[in-house]
């Protein structure tokens, strides 16, 4: 037995930062206290450490499109309940609850607008709506956005954020993978650019369809991206996963992404890429000084 003993004193949290949630926000990565207005101006990226917090779907519309250019498609499309599905709760009730909480009625917003004047079609997924899960409406809205891109010959952008398939729609949720991929096959044949933007988290059926089919696949830093969820993998292989597994950085290293893009640079970076793919001259910031200037 030990004949001396270290007195056990409970550690005191000296800098507990409990804050009124409506004015200040604490960065979950570096712990910095950020004035909420400042965070909003910075598109929910921590000004201190660059950690990307989740940005709501509408945030991406403001981030990517020129002010006032957005025109929404298919705003009124709502999920049916094709299987009459009930688990611990009826699917209809889950849907109704999600619709009440959400401003847009489903897990994706689609529409068109311009990026530095370039017309684009856009889909933005909303993780807060039943985990961004892909059911019939997500598939249908994205497929229609793709068909409009085809019609207008405008590039298609999809901002992905999803836990995967909407199990409550059973096989129909699986079929949305085929449906969206079929539309992307048409865009590919017509030479219309498609840019996939992967945000935290992008997993399951979305990863195994349109998230990985971009002419360019971009991701935000530190996002969880994978086909199988980390817990499923751990249970299958019965060992712990390596540090940094299934992050954006891991996917870039393994050749699945073209670039990791800081959200604050996302618009100019995408415009630069689109201009290359569309055969347009370089954007102003990269252009040679014009002789007229």
């Amino acid at each position: 037995m030990a004949w001396f003993r270290k007195p056990k004193t409970r550690l005191q949290a000296t800098d507990r930062r409990d804050l009124p949630g409506d004015v200040w926000e604490k960065c979950p990565s570096c712990g910095e206290i950020i004035y909420r207005e400042k965070l909003k101006e910075n598109w929910n990226v921590c000004p201190e450490c660059g950690h990307h917090m989740r940005l709501p779907a509408t945030g991406y519309i403001g981030l990517l499109l020129d002010d006032g250019s957005f025109r929404e498609y298919d705003r009124a499309l709502r999920s049916g309940d094709p299987l009459g599905f009930t688990d611990l709760k009826p699917y209809r009730e889950r849907l109704a609850a999600a619709e009440r909480k959400s401003a847009h009625g489903e897990a994706v917003i689609t529409g068109e607008g311009t990026m530095d004047g370039i017309p684009v079609c856009l889909g933005v997924m909303d993780f807060s709506f039943i985990g961004g899960s892909m059911g019939s409406v997500v598939g249908e809205k994205l497929a229609r956005a793709g068909l409009r891109a085809l019609e207008k010959r405008a590039p298609l952008l999809i901002v992905c954020a999803s836990g995967g398939a909407r199990m409550m729609e059973g096989i129909f949720s699986l079929m949305q993978m085929a449906k969206t991929s079929a539309v992307l096959a048409q865009l590919a044949e017509e030479g219309i650019p498609y840019v996939a933007i992967l945000t935290d988290p992008t997993t399951g059926g979305v990863t195994a369809s349109y998230a990985m089919l971009g002419d360019v696949n971009l991701a935000e830093p530190g996002a969880l991206i994978g086909f199988a969820g980390p817990r499923v993998i751990e249970q299958t292989i019965k060992q712990e996963l390596p540090e940094g597994f299934q992050t954006s950085e891991f996917l870039l290293e393994h050749g699945m992404l073209d670039q990791i893009v800081d959200r604050r640079r996302m618009k100019p970076d995408i415009v630069q890429l689109l201009r290359h793919m569309l055969g347009l001259p370089a954007p102003d910031e990269f252009a040679l000084p014009s002789p007229a200037a």
Binding site: M177, A178, S181, A182, L184, A185, A188, T207, A208, S209, Y210, A211, M212, L213, G226, F227, A228, G229, V232, I233, T236, I237, L241, P242, F245, Q246, F250, H254, G255, M256
Partner: peptide
């Protein structure tokens, strides 16, 4: 669902086949 499968792009491989 395994480490090697994810490293080599399980999602990408499936997605490409669908398209």
């Amino acid at each position: 669902p395994g480490i090697g499968a994810e490293e080599r792009g399980q999602g990408e491989a499936i997605a490409r086949n669908l398209r």
